[in-house]
């Protein structure tokens, strides 16, 4: 079962919900931090990192001894990652999308592939909770290929909780597609609602059931609640604004540990999600 936690707007509490749900469920779940640009879940789960793995994407390597400078490679490349200049082939590796078109089109077999470092995958655990995060190399522009690698490394036998990046474009899609349920974390403010609507549109495009957590539920206004009702989005948990929670968060402390009465509420949150998935015909994965 894969539950992806998203929001549209940043800073609404995705990481808080992901980590606290994982802690409430305990051993047997796996938490994937797919916000590879700014991964934070490890700061709160505090797993012991057992190993790291460098992740690369393929980019072309041109053998100039075989190259006839026919320019077929630069012609096929839609991303302007190759340029043939005189007796040289320039590869602009940061523009390459790793489609392999240049290698396939080269009539001389002069192109093979080497790697561009995307970042790292880190594997760890805490109290039986599995943990994987991706850490994008600073300067690397493309996060979706790394997010896909984090997803691919997950253990399909476990309950997977994904901490998704903010926004509604390709990185979020990479963190949500193939999930059994999307849990949207929002706050009842105009910014929260506006970005939630965009994120819900993205989820509907993917055809995945979703529900809401409303964080800092007593600030702002009631429009998020009205929207949820109109759109038939179940509100699965509300968390009031509590300065003690905000201060605990600032120090890397978790709600279920600091305020034990919340443990059961996070377990119930998961049970509600499980019921919705079962009613929809069960999880696509174990």
């Amino acid at each position: 079962m894969i539950i992806s936690i998203a929001s549209g707007k940043g800073g609404t509490g995705k990481t808080t919900i992901s980590v606290n749900m994982a802690l409430a469920l305990g051993a047997g779940v796996e938490l994937l931090d797919c916000d590879v640009e700014e991964p934070n879940a490890h700061l709160f789960l505090k797993p012991k990192i057992e190993r790291s793995e460098k992740v690369e994407v393929p980019i072309p390597l041109v053998d100039l001894d075989k190259c006839t400078f026919c320019k077929k490679c630069s012609d096929i490349c839609r991303f302007n990652a190759l340029a043939v200049v005189g007796k040289q082939v320039l590869v602009f590796q940061e523009l390459c999308h790793s489609c392999g078109g240049c290698m396939a089109v080269c009539p001389e077999g002069a192109i093979t592939e080497t790697g561009r470092e995307l970042g790292f995958l880190n594997f760890g655990a805490r109290d039986g909770i599995g943990f994987i995060n991706g850490r994008l190399r600073v300067g690397e522009a493309m996060s979706p290929p790394l997010i896909k690698q984090v997803r691919a490394a997950a253990n399909p036998q476990r309950i997977t909780i994904i901490d998704a990046p903010p926004g509604t474009s390709c990185p979020v899609i990479a963190a949500m597609s193939g999930a059994d349920f999307i849990l949207m974390v929002t706050e009842p403010t105009p910014f929260g609602l506006h970005d939630l609507k965009l994120a819900v549109e993205a989820v509907r495009l993917l055809g995945i059931p979703c529900g809401l957590v409303i964080n800092r539920a007593d600030i702002g206004d009631r429009k998020v609640f009205d929207y949820a009702e109109k759109e038939n989005l179940p509100i699965l948990l509300t968390i009031p604004f509590d300065r003690r929670i905000a201060e605990a968060y600032s120090r890397g402390k978790n709600i279920v540990e600091e305020f034990p009465e919340w443990r059961q509420r996070f377990t119930e949150l998961f049970r509600k999600i499980e019921v919705i998935i079962t009613e929809r015909g069960g999880a696509a994965h174990a």
Binding site: G10, G11, E37, E38, L136, V138, G139, E140, A141, M142, S143, P165, P166, G167, P171
Partner: peptide, 8 residues
Amino acid sequence: PGIGCPVI
């Protein structure tokens, strides 16, 4: 937010 392509 972030450090990826839109931030660059």
